[in-house]
């Protein structure tokens, strides 16, 4: 599923990475522990987190995530957006909690051909 489709359906704010919205999302991962996300998320995932400091960008870049969603109205630090722009990682924002967003992302993706529910990479 195209990232743009998720952004529109879930009414997500696009903080950066407007030019990457045509990329494909194949699944998602929820986590605030960076080692956990590093080890268990997959390439092409959308990552839902409450962490908003710049270190999330290195994780998303190394694991080649499709985008990061900052849940519950978390505002990113300025250098987070700067780094995300440099690494080409879209950062999206919502006021709703991670549980709700994860449920909606799952529902939308589960009808999609490219969806992979597991954590295999």
């Amino acid at each position: 599923m195209k990232l743009r489709h998720l952004v529109e359906r879930l009414d997500l704010g696009v903080l950066c990475g407007e030019d990457k919205l045509e990329s494909e999302v194949n699944g998602g991962y929820v986590g605030d522990l960076l080692s956990d996300v590093m080890a268990n998320s997959s390439k092409g995932n959308i990552w839902i987190t409450r962490q908003s400091h710049q270190n999330i960008i290195a994780v998303a870049s190394l694991r080649e995530h499709a985008a990061i969603i900052l849940a519950l109205g978390k505002k990113p630090d300025d250098d987070t957006i700067e780094k995300a722009t440099r690494e080409g990682i879209p950062v999206l924002a919502t006021d709703r909690p991670g549980f709700e967003i994860a449920g909606q992302v799952y529902a939308l993706l589960s009808n999609d051909r490219s969806f992979r529910a597991g954590t295999e990479s």
Binding site: D32, L33, L34, S35, D36, M38, A39, T49, Q51, H53, N55, I56
Partner: peptide, 12 residues
């Protein structure tokens, strides 16, 4: 607080 230090590093 930054989400590091979960004790998974060396194990991973």
């Amino acid at each position: 607080q930054m989400g590091f230090g979960a004790g998974m590093g060396l194990y991973n």
